[in-house]
Simulated scan of single mutants.
Amino acid sequence: MPSNLDPEVAQRLRRNEAGLVPAIVQEHGTGEVLMLAWMDDEALHRTLTTGRATYWSRSRNEYWVKGQTSGHFQHVKAVALDCDGDSLLITVEQTGAACHTGNHTCFFTPLEVTG
């Protein structure tokens, strides 16, 4: 799919077989990890140019702006590409819950470590 993403940024991305890169979303100020989402080149371009977190929905096969239907927006403060180019860190100011369950973060289910 064509994108307006800066070619220098696009060249650094290492996408999976579906053309996507995982985006780890972290809350500005607290550092709390809120969620994991997926971006293609166009979603990243939209995020960088609008300041509103835009992702690719694998289940709906469409772009979605976080908060567009829920009102729980993510206002982007920073975007960083990891050293291998295969994941993104999106730092946001979160309005309301990040998780579709209504929880502030998607990571609310602890697992027992026994080793």
Rank of each mutant, 00 (worst) to 15 (best):
residue 1 M to Y: 13
residue 2 P to E: 15
residue 2 P to D: 15
residue 3 S to Y: 04
residue 4 N to T: 14
residue 4 N to P: 12
residue 4 N to V: 04
residue 5 L to Y: 09
residue 6 D to V: 00
residue 8 E to V: 00
residue 9 V to M: 12
residue 9 V to Q: 08
residue 9 V to G: 04
residue 13 L to V: 00
residue 13 L to G: 04
residue 15 R to V: 04
residue 16 N to D: 15
residue 17 E to P: 00
residue 17 E to L: 03
residue 18 A to R: 13
residue 18 A to G: 00
residue 18 A to L: 05
residue 18 A to C: 00
residue 18 A to H: 06
residue 20 L to H: 05
residue 21 V to Y: 01
residue 21 V to S: 05
residue 22 P to D: 06
residue 24 I to H: 08
residue 24 I to A: 07
residue 24 I to W: 07
residue 26 Q to L: 02
residue 26 Q to H: 05
residue 28 H to L: 04
residue 29 G to L: 10
residue 29 G to N: 13
residue 30 T to E: 13
residue 30 T to H: 13
residue 30 T to S: 15
residue 30 T to W: 12
residue 32 E to R: 12
residue 35 M to A: 08
residue 35 M to W: 06
residue 36 L to W: 08
residue 37 A to K: 00
residue 38 W to C: 03
residue 39 M to V: 01
residue 40 D to V: 01
residue 43 A to F: 02
residue 44 L to K: 02
residue 44 L to V: 01
residue 44 L to S: 02
residue 44 L to G: 03
residue 45 H to P: 03
residue 46 R to Y: 03
residue 47 T to P: 05
residue 48 L to I: 01
residue 49 T to S: 15
residue 50 T to P: 03
residue 50 T to F: 07
residue 51 G to Y: 11
residue 51 G to N: 12
residue 51 G to S: 10
residue 53 A to W: 05
residue 53 A to V: 01
residue 55 Y to V: 02
residue 55 Y to L: 02
residue 56 W to T: 00
residue 56 W to H: 03
residue 57 S to I: 00
residue 57 S to H: 09
residue 57 S to G: 08
residue 59 S to R: 04
residue 60 R to I: 00
residue 61 N to F: 04
residue 61 N to M: 08
residue 61 N to T: 05
residue 62 E to A: 13
residue 63 Y to A: 09
residue 64 W to I: 00
residue 64 W to P: 01
residue 64 W to Y: 09
residue 64 W to H: 03
residue 68 Q to M: 09
residue 69 T to D: 13
residue 70 S to R: 03
residue 70 S to M: 07
residue 70 S to C: 07
residue 71 G to I: 01
residue 72 H to S: 12
residue 73 F to H: 14
residue 74 Q to E: 11
residue 74 Q to H: 15
residue 75 H to E: 14
residue 76 V to R: 05
residue 77 K to A: 12
residue 79 V to K: 05
residue 81 L to T: 05
residue 82 D to V: 00
residue 83 C to A: 12
residue 84 D to N: 15
residue 85 G to H: 06
residue 86 D to G: 06
residue 86 D to N: 14
residue 86 D to I: 03
residue 86 D to P: 02
residue 87 S to M: 11
residue 87 S to E: 07
residue 88 L to I: 01
residue 88 L to M: 08
residue 89 L to N: 10
residue 89 L to P: 06
residue 90 I to M: 08
residue 92 V to W: 10
residue 93 E to Y: 03
residue 94 Q to Y: 09
residue 96 G to T: 05
residue 96 G to F: 06
residue 96 G to Y: 09
residue 98 A to P: 05
residue 98 A to K: 01
residue 99 C to S: 13
residue 99 C to G: 13
residue 100 H to Y: 13
residue 100 H to E: 13
residue 101 T to R: 07
residue 103 N to D: 15
residue 104 H to A: 06
residue 105 T to C: 11
residue 105 T to W: 06
residue 105 T to R: 06
residue 106 C to P: 05
residue 107 F to W: 11
residue 107 F to N: 04
residue 108 F to D: 14
residue 108 F to L: 01
residue 111 L to R: 15
residue 111 L to H: 15
residue 111 L to I: 14
residue 112 E to R: 13
residue 113 V to F: 12
residue 113 V to K: 09
residue 114 T to D: 14
